[in-house]
């Protein structure tokens, strides 16, 4: 039952997860600055903090925070002010169930995956609120684009996850990692492999495409397309609230990568490492995998232009969703009939 210790435990875990989120988001911002720079033959941040300009994200955050917190005239100020909190809270909530090691997880929900889908859909709400309340046509259009995009890609995302759940037989993220760690016996050979290598490659591709779309990053960054809508639903935001959106965006990138790493790449687990070692090295293993995926997302951004809204919808409804459905069917078939 609920006791005082329960609450202490909750508070400590929330603080830890919050720290993890903000810390990793800052690292992601720094990584984006540096990775993009080097891909574009630039140096990137160099001065702030001395060596390699490591303090650049902090300097950026500080600079943003000290700006005036503007609420546009004619805006619905309550909604306008609340929107960034919803986005950040929804992103933060996803960190709760991500297992960093067999024991280091804020809360291992039985419904982990289901919870993730439910909570991440709240981001859309915050974005729509931001777009509508700004009293700006660009913002409204950006918000609508974002919502249309998030709805369209929630479906393939969910279907890709469903395929994993079918294979793992559980919705708990820890359970999914354990399912990947469990050895499969093919002939006389007993080996354990991440889901990516055991039939989930299609799901993985769909998941990554959909998550890039959910994150509104290039090539799917139409909601904030600066050459069209100046900054989309972020146009009117400044100061702390902008920083929150900004942090939220990168935190979402981390959390999406973490989910992908957990679902497809084995999370905190890698082959040939003992259970006890995983207890200690689990977080590092997961972070390494996250970094890989984040780098991949950054790489895409440095390479591609953005699509058009109708092309994006086209891609979701005409390609990704049918393929994802088929994929679920195939995997369910294998699960039920073959194994």
């Amino acid at each position: 039952m609920i006791t005082g210790w329960f609450w202490a435990d909750v508070i400590v875990k929330v603080i830890l997860a919050l720290a993890a989120m903000i810390g990793m988001a800052l690292v992601a911002i720094y990584a984006e600055l540096k990775v993009m720079s080097h891909m574009q033959h630039r140096i990137g941040p160099y001065y702030a903090g001395g060596r390699w300009g490591w303090a650049q994200p902090f300097a950026d955050a500080l600079k943003f925070i000290q700006k005036e917190d503007l609420v546009p005239e004619g805006a619905d100020s309550t909604v306008f002010r609340a929107a960034p909190y919803i986005v950040v809270a929804a992103t933060f909530a996803t960190f709760v169930v991500i297992p960093f090691s067999p024991s280091l997880v804020a809360r291992d929900l039985d419904l982990g995956v289901f919870y993730l889908l439910a909570v991440s859909s709240l981001t859309t709400l915050g974005v729509l609120m931001a777009g509508w309340s700004s009293a700006n046509k660009y913002s409204l259009m950006g918000g609508l684009r974002a919502a249309g995009q998030l709805i369209a890609y929630e479906l393939p995302l969910a279907l890709a996850v469903v395929a994993v759940v079918v294979q793992a037989g559980t919705m708990s993220l820890v359970g999914i990692v354990e399912a990947q760690a469990a050895p499969i016996t093919i002939g006389g050979l007993s080996i354990s492999l991440p889901f990516l290598l055991t039939g989930q490659i299609v799901s993985f591709v769909i998941f990554m495409v959909a998550s890039v779309a959910e994150l509104s990053r290039i090539p799917f960054d139409m909601p904030i397309a600066e050459s069209e809508l100046t900054m989309g639903y972020l146009t009117e935001y400044s100061s702390l609230r902008f920083t929150m959106f900004f942090l939220g965006e990168y935190a979402a990138m981390i959390s999406m990568s973490a989910i992908a790493a957990t679902l497809f790449l084995g999370g905190y687990w890698i082959p040939f490492v003992s259970e006890t070692a995983l207890l200690y090295f689990g977080p590092f293993i997961l972070i390494a995998k996250i970094s890989l995926l984040v780098f991949f997302i950054l790489w895409i951004r440095a390479t591609w232009p953005r699509l058009r809204e109708d092309q994006l919808q086209d891609m979701a409804w005409r390609w990704l969703i049918p393929i994802a459905l088929l994929n679920v069917l195939v995997i369910a078939f294998f699960k039920v009939v073959v194994f």
Binding site: L117, A118, L128, G143, L144
Partner: peptide, 19 residues
């Protein structure tokens, strides 16, 4: 389910429709 279906989908559709 309430969060996913009602808030995440139904309400969002409401809002899009209105906006």
């Amino acid at each position: 389910t309430i969060v996913l279906v009602y808030i995440g989908a139904v309400i969002i559709l409401f809002l899009i429709g209105i906006m």
